[in-house]
Design a protein around this nucleic acid. Structure first.
Lengths: 194, 194
DNA sequence: TACAAAAGTGCAATGAGTCAACTAAGCAAC
DNA sequence: GTTGCTTAGTTGACTCATTGCACTTTTGTA
């Protein structure tokens, strides 16, 4: 029975994890982050509170269950860019094409609002996002054969990862992203004022 | 006796606050952040634990008791820059002159190590620092008569405030800071290799 | 079948942070 | 000075996140 039962444990584990994440998100959206306790989530998912912590490092992590994917996409944008395309250009395209699309997806709206309206989550999201700085910096450095501690690469990585926070709430994300990349490519210029 | 006794309450309050902050820092440096409870601090300062929270918003805030000052300095660097000096230049000078001097001050070393070695504090410090983005962005925007929501100004503010995190741990802060400002002024260039 | 690893449970404990009712010190006006 | 308002501080109980431990159940495997 090795084949048919292979990974039953894995699947059940994944199912439990998903049940917890689903229950958490549902309750958070329904009542607000602060108004939901781990106990509530555990009950809704029909597990014990300790089991919740076996699957997630903390309450905040329950909200951001699918972040590795987006990091991977970002990394891929650099490492698997079209031949002849510059790193900066690859990143710009990634933001304009992939990132904006995801961010403006209708389903994303209420989730975004949840994060937006909970200071604790906003802080966590930002931390989580900028935490990928090292990985992206390494990818950029590799693209140039520079050392992983190269300052210019680290700066580019961080500045690019700041973009989501910077353009948040702008009416025209497209224009906003272009503005930032223009600054990164050509240097900062004073704003044009009447 | 209006003069000599004026604000005795104020002074006592300030004294209590200081006693708490001092006790906290002393214990943190002695035993490490995680190994000190609010209870310990309250006992050392001879107040109740609730009093601690009357003066400080949370445990982390006990460590960063004097941050408004540095924000004010930064703001002043922009608003009170020498005539004819560009904003970017004023900021560069501020970092090279004032910021590096403070950061490399001997007394600062053990404090820096405490923050450095406590992930919770590192995250908090970064958040605290970048939280001033709005204020700095407004100051920069004012310098150009632009609106307070001007994206280019917001980006510059955030990117400048990222500098401490970016150059942390570099052997030559001077060079590191110059590198970043060069990027901000003239755009990003691939690192020179081979 | 028997055994080891992993998933999950229950329970108790720690520690941060909040709340409400109370005490007492400062301060002002009379 | 005494009356009375304001506010710092106290006390103790409470909620909740998070951890550790000992235990049971399930699953994979020899």
């Amino acid at each position: 029975m090795t084949v048919s039962s292979a990974g039953r444990r894995e699947r059940k584990k994944a199912a439990t994890r998903q049940a917890i994440a689903d229950a958490a998100l549902r309750l958070f959206l329904l009542r607000g982050y602060d108004q939901v306790s781990i106990r509530d989530i555990a009950d809704a998912a029909d597990v014990s509170t300790t089991t919740v912590f076996k699957h997630f490092t903390g309450k905040e992590a329950l909200v951001f269950d699918e972040d590795e994917e987006r990091e991977a996409q970002l990394m891929a944008a650099v490492t698997q860019r079209a031949p002849g395309q510059s790193v900066l250009d690859a990143l710009r395209r990634h933001f304009l094409d992939t990132w904006i699309r995801i961010e403006t997806h209708p389903q994303r709206a209420e989730f975004a609002h949840l994060v937006e309206s909970t200071p604790e989550l906003r802080a966590y999201a930002e931390r989580m996002w900028t935490r990928h700085t090292e990985a992206l910096a390494a990818a950029v450095a590799d693209a140039f054969g520079a050392g992983h501690d190269d300052l210019a690469c680290a700066a580019l990585a961080r500045y690019v990862l700041d973009i989501p926070a910077l353009v948040r709430g702008r009416h025209d994300l497209q224009v906003a992203v272009e503005t930032i990349f223009d600054l990164l490519a050509h240097g900062w210029r004073p704003p044009a004022t009447g």
